[in-house]
Design a protein around this nucleic acid. Structure first.
Lengths: 216, 216
DNA sequence: GATCAGATAGGGGAAACCCCTATGCTAAAA
DNA sequence: TTTTAGCATAGGGGTTTCCCCTATCTGATC
């Protein structure tokens, strides 16, 4: 069989060029085309019939996640590999949930990308060890059905507090609003952190804010 | 004269590779080396004696602006060209003030980068039309403080800290990374809050996270 | 009836936050 | 050319949060 065809969707031409050159040096892979946004990407899929699509998450206009979702709908067997500059712990999960088959950061070494591409082409899933570990932990700890979202692990009260944290309220304000002791809210915070496998208070806040922002 | 030597300082290996491959195809240019952070960059300058340094602004640890300032001090005639993925209107001016001789976005086409490199090597300054226009406007309108973004009000150091806050780092981590006292970071935090008219620390964090998500 | 998870909350030490003050340093303004 | 102003840096001291533990009460679940 010939070289597997790759489509790159990323809005940074320099990066596209870099990826393309690296990939084209491999005997079994070839970059069939490039696009810089979601509509362009979809057109290219139609025309080129690639074997895999490499997608950046932060595209102009429509978000890369949308492209992945659409691909999942229209071309069920066409896998997407996300190559993003964003902190993986926050986006990887969302990307995979949307249907991506891999997630790798732009900070990674070049050969890691090739590994990722081949793994995804073989039908496997590629994510960094860090993410794998984190996801496995979440799976193991919570009853497996928690797969829909880690937030399912939270109790009602915890979820309420989580939302308020995401709105930027501080502990005392939350305590006030809910007519509870500050100490109680502190307890919730630590329970939430535990369940979501977050380490610091700032991590919690960051997660909460971002979750609330793209309320999915 | 032989090919002009270029040093690339960027923390994304894929992008470095891309730039390098594009540059090395030019008969008059050659990539002499790559570095992924500021200390590495400074070492490489010492060793390679490049003719120009291409710098990304968002480097791990110390920020690219600092590298440019140091270069300006230690190697007065070594020009820096900033290649950043950040919104130019906010950073270009700061970069130029710090001593950079050009600013180009990663969104630009590949050949624009070559144009920029050659222009900077000739001793000229390269910036996009958009930035030129904006700077002229600011000049004309006088003080006016082109407050296109309230973040324009922040000093370089404050902006660096602001971004780190948005990445979810806590005060002590920031202090550590920048080799500064926790007290100094606290000062920056309060200055930033004042300039952005934010009341609480959580408000600041929320703002920083959200801003980083969209405009970065 | 024992066990378990959820809602509530306290103790105590470390860390962060917040408001003020302060010192060089450089650049602009008077 | 003083003066002023903004920036980078940092300490003092009081208040609030954070963080790790322990604890009570309640309603399920086994």
């Amino acid at each position: 069989m010939g070289r597997r065809k790759i489509l790159i969707v990323d809005d940074h031409p320099i990066l596209r060029k870099g990826l393309a050159m690296v990939i084209d040096q491999e005997p079994d892979l070839v970059v069939a085309g490039e696009a810089e946004d979601v509509p362009g990407g979809l057109d290219m899929i139609e025309v080129l019939k690639p074997d895999i699509v490499i997608v950046d998450l932060s595209l102009p206009g429509v978000d890369g996640i949308e492209l992945i979702k659409t691909m999942k709908l229209k071309y069920r067997d066409l896998p997407a590999l996300v190559v993003s500059m964003h902190d993986e712990t926050l986006y990887a999960e969302r990307a995979l949930r949307a249907g991506a088959r891999g997630y790798i950061m732009k900070q990674e070494a070049v050969d890691k990308v090739l590994v990722a591409i081949r793994k995804v082409l073989k039908g496997e899933i590629f994510v960094s060890d860090r993410i794998t570990t984190k996801m496995l932990e979440t799976l193991i700890s919570g009853d497996a059905k928690g797969a829909s979202t880690p937030l399912d692990l939270l109790s009602n009260r915890e979820l309420t507090v989580f939302r308020m944290i995401g709105q930027g309220l501080k502990t005392s304000q939350i305590a006030d609003t809910l007519h509870l002791s500050v100490k109680t809210i502190e307890s919730y915070r630590s329970h939430i952190k535990e369940k979501l496998r977050l380490h610091t208070g700032t991590d919690l806040m960051k997660y909460a804010i971002q979750w609330l922002q793209n309320a999915s």
